[in-house]
Design a protein around this nucleic acid. Structure first.
Lengths: 134, 134
DNA sequence: GCTCATCGCTTGGTAGACTTAGCACAGAGA
DNA sequence: TCTCTGTGCTAAGTCTACCAAGCGATGAGC
């Protein structure tokens, strides 16, 4: 596990330093989603039909996965391919114009498994993080 | 050498050189769009910042371009990246598919105004409400 | 103590995405 | 005629996305 070092090590040569903005967060995003789903690397790799060492490299930002691999990882994490592509910088933004932050609140409101109070609580926390007055 | 370079590929669906499912039409699509825009291979390759021989291979279905290249070609042809991804089989042509509860987490993750820690916090609360162990 | 299982990661290697150089053919002047 | 210039394609090479095998660390059970 180790700490949350931004720079792990591996200053070997150089290879691809920084290719695209927003793709450095892709590995972090995948790892976060994987841990939120309580999946080990091997489990996720098995479901996504990729090798676990490669998943390790991807999560640490050493390699840029192809769209096909991104699609499989997205499916294994129950995310849409669009979500993954946006994270990878392959798609710009989501089509819905009225989207923005409304999407978070709308998604919360639409979740049938939450009670109204729970929805209010989450949205209140969300707005407080954004600095929006309730 | 035998002059085998017939302009229009036999659109008769001849599957002799069928390589991957769903994307023997990608090269044909790109070539059609290029000729529709009155661009030569070198011109399009120049705009899309790829080499012209590679564009030739792509148009004839010999190689599968990466999503990054697809995005650049789409931009050079004044098409949306989604259109190209759909043609390449990387996306389904049904972008909006909301309604799943997991979209809450995706929406939170995609909000650019939240820090990673804030996203983790909200998602943990959300998941705790759903009765899912951290 | 000693296994055994599982975790993430490193190593070495292969295939294909992609490039730079060059070929063959066709049309437009001189 | 013979050069140009432009078209698309071939050949040979480089780079990297991706895989199989194996390593060190950690925790549970004997």
């Amino acid at each position: 596990m180790s700490d949350e070092s931004e720079r792990p090590k591996s200053e070997t040569g150089d290879t691809t330093n920084d290719q695209a903005p927003g793709w450095n967060g892709l590995g972090t995003f995948i790892r976060a989603q994987r841990e939120l789903a309580n999946l080990s690397m091997r489990q996720l790799a098995e479901i996504a039909k990729i090798s676990n060492p490669y998943l390790s490299q991807v999560e640490r930002g050493l390699y840029k996965p192809s769209a096909d691999v991104l699609k499989q990882i997205a499916g294994a994490l129950h995310l849409s391919a669009e979500t993954m592509y946006v994270q990878a910088g392959l798609l710009d933004d989501t089509p819905p114009a009225e989207g923005d932050a409304r999407d978070v609140e709308a998604a919360i409101r639409l979740d049938p498994r939450l009670t109204v109070d729970q929805k209010d609580t989450i949205i209140r926390i969300y707005r407080s993080f954004l600095g929006i007055a309730p």
